[in-house]
Structure formats: C-alpha cells, structure tokens
Simulated scan of single mutants.
Amino acid sequence: MSSAWIPDETPEELWLDRINLAGVGIGNIAYGVHITLFFLCFIAWWADRRRAPKSAYSMLAFISCVFILGSIGNGTQMRLLQMAYVDYRNYPGGPGAFETFEGSVKVNVIGTAAYTVNAWFADGLLLYRFSILWSFSRFRWAIVPALLGFVLSVISSCILLSQIADPGGALWISSSANMALTFWSSSISVTCYCTLGIVVKLLYMRYQVRKAFGANEPDSPYFSVAAMLIESALLYAAFALSFLITYAQGNTASLMLLSILGQVQSIAPLLIVLRVAQGRGWTIAKVKETERLGASGFGAPTVQFLHPSTAYGSETVAGTGSHTPNMEFEGRSVLSLATKPSDGPLRCSAEGCAGDRSSGEQSDSAV
C-alpha cells in the first residue's frame, strides 16, 4: 500500500481511530446477544402472563425499557461513528478526536442519556435481587450502603448529563471528568457491592443446605456456579470495573470498553430475568424456605424429585434421610426447600409449597 494513502495523523491519533472502530464493532456484537436475550425473556414471560399476570407484565415492561434504551444507545453510537468517519472526516485530529471531544452533539447526548438510564435499571434490579436474598437475615441493613450509593449515582449522572449537553462538553475533558468519575465510581461500587453480597449469601445458604441434608444433599440449580455468576451480575461488574480503572488512568482502552459496557449493562439483567422466568431464579419464598431449613437444625428429609413428564411418563429420583417424612418436588425440576408441617406431608412444586393444613397454601412469588 502506498504511504500517500495514510491520513495526515499522528500514530496516537490513528490508534484512537482504531480503538473507536473496534469498540463500536464489538458493541454491535453484544447488541446481537442483547436482542436474542430480549426475545427469549419476552416469550417466556408472555407465556406466563395468565398464571402470574402481575409479575409477567412487570417483567415485560422492565425488559422492554431495557431493550429500547439499549437500542437507542447502540443506534446513536452508529450515527456518531458515521459523523466522525464520513460527515466530518477532516476534523482536526481525526475521527477519534471528533468522538472524544465533540460530546455535546445532540446524538451523543441522547445516547449517553439512554445508557445512563439503563445503568439505573441495571443497578436497580441488582439492588432488588440483593434485598431478596438478604431480606430474612439479621444483616438486612446491609442494603443501606448500596441504596446510598445508588442515590449518589443517580444525582451525579444527572449533573454529568447537564455538563455534557453544554457546548463543548464531553466525557473526556477535565470539566466533566470529575463528575463522570463520581457517577461511575458510585454506580460501579453499588454493582460490586451487590455482586459480592449476593455471592456471599448464596455460598452461605448452600452451606446451610449441605448442613441440613448432609450426604444426601440434592443437586440444585440455585447453588450452581452459573446461578452465582448470573444472580450476582458478575459479567456487568467485571466490565464496569475494567472501564472505571482505565478511565481513571486516562487509558484510551476506556473508549472501547465504554461502547461494550453500554450493552453489557443490558445483558446482565436480562440473564437474571430469563433465569427467573425459567423457574430457576431466587424468589422471596425460596429464600424464606431455605433460611427456615437452615435454622431448623433437622437432619436430611426424604426428598423426591419428580421431573417434568415426558412422552412416556415421569422420571423419579429419590434420596433418603432420617428425621422428617417425605417432601416432594415436582414441576420444572425446582428445588423448593421447606420444613414439614406438624400435621401432614408437604408437597412443593414450581408454584410453591402446601401441606395438609387448614391455614391454606404457601405460594411462591415470581421475581
């Protein structure tokens, strides 16, 4: 190739151009994952709307908002890329400099606002999942620091958006950098705090179950590695922390990570919502039953797993214990943990647990 074709830019400016292109390209791949997860979640919750309409419609509204905001963010990034590399290709410093320093253009402000509100949704869902797992613990006050961090992130993000919207405003200039650091530091602190708290709580509850069941501990989708990774939104926490570190250092890699982070913050909550829709996510009732089992001090009950019926019937796997009568689990291979009522056997299914008691049934709330 002829050297005459090389743009009149320094190696650093050319590197900035490449980083921007790579970030938007990888972000588009992540957006494809986002679309797939959205339709999977939508189909699952739409099919569940008659059984649990309140939960179903709430989740449909949530995933729709996340999808719309993520789509707006991705679309504005593509438009900004077009402006930098086509419409204003002769901008001093090249396309990368245009995207870095012309943050006040309307399309960029709209995209930044969409991703910022999306971060509120992602952090809000993580806070809600955190509160579910810790709601029956004596350390339920642990939610307070996360709530304070969330409020700080919302306030600082609003100030940041007003600074970017001013003429000449951008994320990467000194006048906005401090507020941007405040916003992302508080938001990512909430994410990491909730991630760590959820993992710790799941490990502790798994210890409780193993202690109660002993050698006969059943396989459970609630304590698997996948459950901990998804429930804690570890994917989002890892990307967010990587971005914060590179942004604070002034590393150009933060430009690429920011484009990807906008979609990852949509993917992480959709994974949680899909897991709940499939009957494998933690709910308030399941946490309460597990806490009760761990506090009861009883030995391992007899457990029957009645798997979903196939074309030729149902497959049954039984484990035995010594202290309590049968507890049966049926439906979508859901492990629902509960103690036995004093006056009758207990049956647990995907919808909840019920015993032979006059007080009625105990139902399992969705999400």
Rank of each mutant, 00 (worst) to 15 (best):
S153R: 03
N74T: 15
V109I: 13
L125W: 08
D87C: 01
Y88Q: 07
L81E: 10
W141C: 06
F98H: 04
T116A: 07
Q82I: 12
V86G: 00
V154H: 00
P95T: 02
I159T: 07
L171F: 15
F42W: 14
V151R: 00
S162R: 07
Y91S: 03
G75R: 03
L133D: 02
Y128Q: 03
M83S: 08
M78R: 06
I110A: 05
W46L: 06
P167Y: 06
A142M: 12
N74P: 01
A180D: 10
T112N: 12
Y91M: 02
R51V: 15
F67S: 06
D123P: 03
N90M: 13
G96M: 04
V107M: 05
F39E: 04
N178W: 14
L147A: 02
L133H: 05
L40E: 10
I43G: 01
A56W: 05
S137Y: 09
M179S: 07
V66I: 12
Y128T: 12
Q77R: 12
S137K: 02
R140I: 06
S174L: 13
K106L: 15
L147H: 00
A113Y: 02
F101R: 10
R140H: 08
G168N: 08
M59R: 05
E102N: 14
D166E: 14
A47E: 15
W141G: 02
V117Q: 00
L127C: 05
I173P: 00
P167G: 08
A52V: 15
G93A: 08
S71N: 09
V66Y: 01
I68V: 13
A56H: 04
S55D: 11
D123C: 11
G70K: 07
S176C: 14
F38N: 01
V105M: 01
V107F: 01
V86K: 01
L80N: 11
R138S: 14
N118Y: 01
L37H: 09
T100V: 04
A52Y: 10
